[in-house]
Design a binder for these strands. Structure first.
Lengths: 380, 380
DNA sequence: CCGTCTAGTAAGGAGTCCTGACCAAAGGAG
DNA sequence: CTCCTTTGGTCAGGACTCCTTACTAGACGG
């Protein structure tokens, strides 16, 4: 609400931010190149580079320009500006990466859970994965972005269990696990939300401001992107569609998750979908398979109709172990196209989408951490 | 994406904006008061006031401070800074207002349609209402914000007809009707979206960042507020819930709008709900009324479940001719509370909500128009 | 070897904001 | 009535930021 107060300090900070961002995007630049890129005059850029070098954020790389004219000196971010941790937590294990401010992944580790699933084993796997990547990165970990295959409470960052939905990873607080290894903020979100961001950044929803990503796998979920942002809702549970009323077998209205119980496609003693059984029942050319596909398409169609009604997307993206299966996706698409307010349907196509989305956000977070970090007063 | 380039001009503009906003909120202030309010030093404020006075945006009101100390001169916005038009368009007619940059309504007119509904009559009514308020306002109309009781295409601002939904006002392009009377941009949105903003600004959803406003009247609609903004979706049709699949009578899945056909509660030859018939059927203590209420509650419950699943609101607001009816609202609330992911339900309470929401936005738009308007170069 | 071309610096100026001192004028105390 | 206090507003000086223009340093090309 309150408007920023104008000051010369603010102006200088903006100049420094321009210089830093130019270098983050380009890797290394001479002062003249920075001036050309940002539109700021050469003397001002030189001032800023001097300031930032004295603060330890920038360094002469030792490289020099070649070609006609005077040799230029290349500057780049200092080596110790730190890194960000990215991790993807699923029921099978953990994938962890570190990225620097240029967006380059500097280390990667995968730790599987084998036959010992559960939150404790997952916490250990996360700790272990961090220990594996930690020594292979320069500087401290200034922030972390975590993807988890369960709903995430927006306020606390904890994984939460919703009624009648599978709890794939289990009760876990990633921020607590990482408390010792990461200096700054730890941001946790659902894997589907990260996947949606990845599709928007470079997948089938490239640049689309309003779309819905529907994930159909062991669990059921979706991500709602409106006005170019994933919307998480008050608790962070937007997109948890298990209890959305839709059309079940024989035209009855029932929660989405119960359709799978009704069809006998759940795993024993669990609310998770048995993807193997589903594929066995829905793929192929038999009349039974076609019937199953029809039932699935009608149930998913109800979910898509709800998404269209409430979010008005330009596009719907189907992802997940069986949602991206061409034959099933085609059945869904055909049924949905016949509904009164249909929109185009596309298939997700980014590999490791959750990790990719989290990685992009981690780079962003690391960059702003570097830019907004308090700097020593220039009082020498 | 690209970062603002720092410049001294930008700083000055920020100072001027601080001064202008302070005066817009407070009405009249002395330079010392502006300095105290904004935190900007007195000399700088004096400079800014001189600049803005020379540009014709500010004027000495002639009033003077009384009390101890030197007399101060009060400044205020110049009288000719213009006004904004606000209009609410419904099937029964048009209400138009003009507001100034202080948020004060300066004129108001209501033009009914009587027995001649339809888009042509509505366009005439709008023109007439504007002609009535126009002479009673100072300065030109610099922007307009329109509320319409039909879905609005976000890109064009036209009212659009969706299949199986009533078209209460009809095919109309408010911006075209107003082209001659309004200088600046014309913003058109659905009445339900404006109502939701009004409830957030000062009603039962005061300050809530994530909520869903469900309107149950002749038409069916809702507004989705996430992260403190009404989300309109790609076409502007977010919240058009007529085709959302829900639970109909006898437990069958069907589009929301068809529930009313099934219950015989639609008006003849129309997809609009017969509110009179609905009240007759659902109010009272008879077994039949209780059955009807139950059917309505289950149908609305499906819609609320979908809203909770996709938007994760902190609150659901019920409004509209029968949605706010206490007995029906209570039936909805009771049924919804038993669902697995229930959230609090409140009743809308802002009077003339669509107009109130549009008015607030019009003030905002007028203020930014004044602040960002190109100013004559100070070259005297 | 000299002209050309480019990175970077130096000098000067315009503009913005601030601090602190000062002035003007009204109300209150005695 | 006079003096002091209080407050709005201005003045002068200074710190700082950014820009333009002109200049220097130094390598390549012919």
């Amino acid at each position: 609400m309150s408007l920023a107060k104008p000051s010369l300090e603010m102006l200088r900070a903006l100049t420094d931010e321009n210089v830093l961002r130019a270098l983050m995007e380009e890797g290394r630049l001479t002062r003249a190149e920075i001036a050309a890129r940002t539109g700021i005059s050469k003397p001002t850029v030189s001032d800023s580079v001097r300031r930032l070098s004295e603060a330890g954020l920038l360094a002469d790389t030792g490289e020099r320009t070649t070609g006609r004219g005077r040799v230029g000196t290349y500057y780049s971010l200092a080596a110790d500006t730190g890194a960000a941790l990215v991790a993807s937590i699923g029921p099978d294990g953990v994938v962890a990466e570190t990225v620097d401010a240029f967006g380059t992944a500097t280390a990667r580790a995968e730790v599987g859970l084998g036959r010992a699933p559960g939150p404790h084993a997952t916490a250990r796997a996360l700790t272990e994965a961090v220990a594996l990547v930690r020594p292979r990165t320069h500087g401290r970990l200034r922030t972390a972005v975590i993807s988890a295959a369960d709903p995430v409470d927006r306020a606390t960052g904890r994984l939460v269990h919703l009624p009648d939905a599978p709890f794939l990873v289990g009760d876990l607080d990633p921020a607590e696990v990482l408390a010792g290894s990461v200096d700054g903020a730890v941001l946790v979100d659902n894997d589907i939300n990260w996947a949606a961001r990845a599709e928007r950044a470079g997948g089938c929803a490239l640049g689309v401001d309003d779309f819905v990503y529907v994930h159909l796998g062991e669990g059921l979920g979706c991500a709602v992107v409106t006005d170019a942002e994933v919307r998480r809702g008050h608790h962070g549970l937007a997109g948890e569609i298990a209890h959305l009323f839709t059309e079940g077998p024989r035209g009855r209205a029932m929660p989405f998750t119960e359709v799978f119980a009704e069809l006998g496609l759940r795993r024993a003693e669990s609310t998770a979908i048995d993807v193997g059984a589903l594929r066995a029942a829905a793929l192929g050319d038999s009349a039974a398979a076609r019937r199953t596909r029809g039932a699935l398409a009608r149930a998913v169609g109800g979910v898509l109709a709800a998404a269209v009604a409430l979010a008005d997307p330009r596009l719907i993206v189907l992802g997940g172990a069986w949602g991206a299966e061409p034959v099933i996706a085609e059945a869904i698409r055909a049924h949905f196209a016949a509904l009164p307010r249909s929109v185009p349907v596309a298939a997700a196509r980014v590999p490791e989408p959750a990790l990719a989305g989290a990685r992009a956000r981690a780079v962003e977070a690391l960059r702003t951490a570097i830019i907004t970090a308090p700097r020593p007063e220039a009082s020498a």
